[in-house]
Write a protein that binds this DNA or RNA. Structure first.
Lengths: 153, 153
DNA sequence: TCTAAATACATAACATGTTATGTATTTCAT
DNA sequence: ATGAAATACATAACATGTTATGTATTTAGA
């Protein structure tokens, strides 16, 4: 059981358009993330793939789509671009001829090492002035929303 | 000054990838919003335009882009689709020949009346189980994040 | 065993958004 | 009054994601 004291800015008003807030939130995040990633030759959509395949791991495209939480066709086109850009390799799965195994190239491995510091810096920027408790409350509330929305799918 | 008692689920852990959370959040919002809007023949991107032009208002494309908080080319292509679909009309501004004035068609006005209830229902779904205080805290924290991120642009 | 269902991937068509760039018009300072 | 800068819009090229649909392979049940 936890208590919050003095969260600055609390107004006790009805939420302004929550979806407009989260849309704006996400676009700002993506914009700044793209800006940082650009220096290393990466794009925002590639981040989950690079993280899932770190340390030489191998996954098929379905597993990557599940990890990134996007639909399969989106992952297929994303991986096609990443292969074109030399970040990943695709090879047929000998154990299941429907399946394609994906691994990072050496260049993909090298570039993926920039992601964690970039994400940490971005998170710090976003949560500037937040107390640790406020950070946890935010994450908790967002996860509750995501759970509520997901249950409506 | 306000206090929170017993926010369920608080874990006191480091935030999991905040941008992944907000990205997921926004995609879920958009998905459910699209699903509801589909019944009325609208799309999620059209919502800010329809709201800005309610009650017969007239705005040029730049003002609409500012209102929707997107770049001008995005608004141009959005309005082209909305004109194609009969939701808006565009006419040259007689006072400034660079400018195009946008108004809702009768069909656009009629359909736009569905937006508020849909958005309210979606917000209620997302914030199911939230106390009024939790709603306010969420909005406050999101607005603080947006402000921090915006200052980095 | 063999057929029906499930699974993995690809492709097409599209919406939504971004940067980069070009054109026409307006504004403003000298 | 005019030339430079600012403004409004359009277009192109692209990334990211969605649904709908098709193909090939694997799995599972009668």
């Amino acid at each position: 059981m936890y208590f919050i004291h003095m969260i600055p800015g609390i107004r006790m008003t009805a939420p302004s358009h929550l979806s407009a807030l989260t849309t704006r939130n996400n676009r700002l995040f993506t914009l700044l993330l793209e800006r940082e990633l650009k220096k290393t030759g990466l794009r925002s959509g590639q981040v989950p793939v690079l993280q899932a395949l770190q340390d030489g791991k191998t996954l098929n495209q379905k597993a990557l789509a599940d990890f990134a939480d996007i639909e399969q066709p989106g992952m297929t086109t994303l991986l096609a671009r990443m292969e074109r850009d030399g970040l990943i390799q695709r090879e047929p799965d000998p154990a299941d001829r429907r399946s394609t195994l994906v691994t990072l190239t050496l260049d993909g491995q090298r570039k993926s090492r920039n992601i964690v510091p970039i994400m940490e810096h971005l998170t710090d920027t976003a949560l500037k002035g937040f107390t640790p408790l406020e950070r946890d409350i935010l994450v908790t509330l967002l996860e509750r929303i995501n759970s509520s929305l997901k249950s409506q799918l």
